[in-house]
Amino acid sequence: MEILKIENARKNFGGVKAVDGLSFSVQEGEILGIIGPNGAGKSTVFNLLCGLIPVDAGRIVFLGEDITLLAPHKRCHMGIGRTFQICQPFKELTVLGNVAVAAVFGHSKPVHPGKVKKYSEEVLAKVNLSSKKDLYPAQLTTPDLKLLEIARALATRPRLLLLDEMMAGLLPGECDKILDLIKGINREGITVILVEHVMRVVRELCQRVIVMNYGQKLCEGCYEDVTGDERVIEAYLGQEETVAQ
């Protein structure tokens, strides 16, 4: 079943076409990767999908409903969760409080107020952060902050999870842990779209990959197909994140 469809989406910033007539769809249960050189418009796509930025033109359909004009919190209630490339924890709240925000507000059927704490602790246990639940974000390491990002998104009980460069700034060993975590999340039936620069992760996780360049879809297919595509190699030439990573 098709869970998300984006049709001919456009977004200009000043004169720059950040997203230029992009269309793709996502099947329920899959892991879709979006790759492309820096400035290709990948993060903008996420912002359009979660509603932080309105599209200039085009349509977004989620679970058969047109959500093009819907506010971010309503999209969240419908089941779109996301993480941010630069971790943005709520610095005044503890780790548990951070997750509680998502637990209390993240779904159209809210968690019963008496069960928020228990529910949040369960989510933290899922990402292995239970021991740090009473710390403040300033006391966490980078990998833990990434886990907190995921925990918050999970606590909204999403059907579709947008993961924005989870591996940036992580050591290979730390990547593996998050990789397993994402696999586990997907196994529970949550559809995942990830924007990623670390190609190993894309290869291991994604059934399907979309390559973006200059705000457009350059090509689409399985990992081996797109990385062998000449246009893709050309787009990446001169970029520091070479395909050979």
């Binding site: 932080l52 209630h77 943005q88 924890p89 709520f90 925000v101 507000f105 779904h107």
Partner: peptide
């Protein structure tokens, strides 16, 4: 919870359903 979240970032708060 909503206020604390919004004080750090209204955008992030809204993405988490606030």
């Amino acid at each position: 919870l909503a206020f604390s979240a919004m004080r750090t970032s209204p955008s992030v708060a809204s993405v988490l359903g606030v």
